[in-house]
Design a protein around this nucleic acid. Structure first.
Length: 371
DNA sequence: AACACGTGGAT
DNA sequence: TATCCAAGTGT
């Protein structure tokens, strides 16, 4: 962190901390947690047991996804599937619809598979220990520890991105991520108390989300300020060390927006595996680097008059940027959909498993086809 | 071990 | 506008 403004008060505070550095204590963190309790739809009231189903569902949704984004998805999801049995008896398509827009769609496929295994192998009750949880689809090292600690009060130490940041600062860990993971886990595990391990984990994550933030951490409000080595060095913001990933190469492609005169739009389903697996899409070409627009009409789903729309649809995936040219065509009412595709009424698009990039294509086409 | 896998909010 | 990156898992 920076000593904002360099005020005398702040400098004195920093000097006082240097003199008084103490060992970090879980008790201090838990006290902070109790004073700064945050309410979430999946979080029980203080002292109440959390439902394993809700803990599991929220943990899956929260993987690589911000709390503010997850909240409304979680509420909708629980309203539709109040318990693991309801989810297990649903079709995958129904689950993907509720997941559309949330990203990382393998999570939804694994969530569905996991619900069926919990019912089939564990009688509809989540197992409480990490080893057993770890055997379920979509539940990895982090999530198994999180469920064991938060739902079952087992002494387990989940380490997510927040906790990595908190710990790397607390101990000024110079090893860059992801190599530092074992070291960070060892530190976190040593700090985990036998009492309230679930609250401890949530407290660490809340601390990372609200105080020990990536940019401009609010160190004076931190219960660990007297223990933090990075702060003592005046270097909190420079942790965790990280090795930059190579950025993905631009890919291009074309999308074919077909609308019937009654308004219905032509859609199809993507293969179950891989990018946007199992989701609905607007028909299009492959996405490739070095893509040539000139030949793309060969791949069009119908032999009709195509109009190349002005502009492009741009979308950034985690591992590559995408640039799409959109072609549009209008066909008469009653035109049957080509094999493997279907026409869907425009006002029914909301209840389709359309990922964000596909919604962008539809919006771009509707904005531009009559210009 | 390294890469595939989405999206949107903050700065 | 560009960049970062968030409660990771599977292969």
């Amino acid at each position: 962190m920076t000593l904002a403004g360099g005020s005398r008060l702040t400098k004195n505070f920093a000097r006082a901390v240097k003199r008084a550095k103490t060992a970090p204590s879980a008790a201090a963190l838990l006290a902070w947690y109790d004073r700064n309790r945050r309410e979430f739809p999946w979080r029980a009231q203080a002292g109440r047991r959390m439902e394993p189903y809700k803990v599991w569902l929220s943990e899956i949704m929260l993987q690589q996804t911000r709390v503010e984004t997850v909240e409304r998805y979680f509420v909708r999801f629980v309203a539709r599937f109040p318990a693991v049995q309801a989810l297990a008896s649903a079709r995958l398509g129904e689950v993907l619809k509720l997941w559309a827009g949330l990203g990382y769609y393998a999570r939804a496929r694994n969530l569905h598979a996991c619900s069926r295994e919990v019912v089939a192998r564990f009688g509809g009750k989540f197992p409480s220990d990490e080893q057993a949880l770890r055997t379920l689809p979509g539940i990895g090292v982090y999530t198994s520890a999180a469920i064991a600690a938060i739902a079952f009060d087992r002494k387990a130490t989940p380490v997510d991105g927040n906790i990595e940041r908190v710990i790397s600062r607390l101990f000024a860990v110079e090893t860059p991520l992801p190599k530092a993971k074992p070291e960070l886990f060892a530190h976190a595990s040593r700090l985990t108390p036998a009492a309230r391990p679930g609250d401890f984990a949530q407290a660490m994550m809340d601390l990372g989300a609200t105080v020990c933030t990536p940019k401009r951490p609010d160190c004076p409000r931190c219960p660990f300020v007297f223990s933090c080595e990075a702060y003592r060095q005046g270097m909190a913001e420079s942790f965790p060390r990280r090795i930059a990933k190579a950025e993905g190469k631009l890919r291009r492609g074309a999308a074919f927006f077909v609308q019937r005169t009654d308004g219905a739009v032509l859609l199809r389903k993507r293969p179950l595996k891989g990018l946007l697996g199992g989701m609905t899409e607007v028909p299009g070409t492959e996405w490739a680097s070095g893509f040539e627009i000139s030949g793309s009409l060969i791949h069009a789903p119908l032999g009709v008059a195509w109009k190349k729309l002005p502009g492009r649809v741009r979308h950034i995936f985690t591992h590559f940027p995408l640039e799409l040219t959109v072609y549009s065509a209008t066909v008469p009412k009653g035109t049957p959909a080509p094999k493997g595709m279907r026409f869907v009424a425009l006002n029914k698009l909301d209840s389709e498993a359309l990922p964000t990039v596909m919604r962008k294509i539809v919006a771009h086409a509707l904005d531009n086809q009559n210009r």
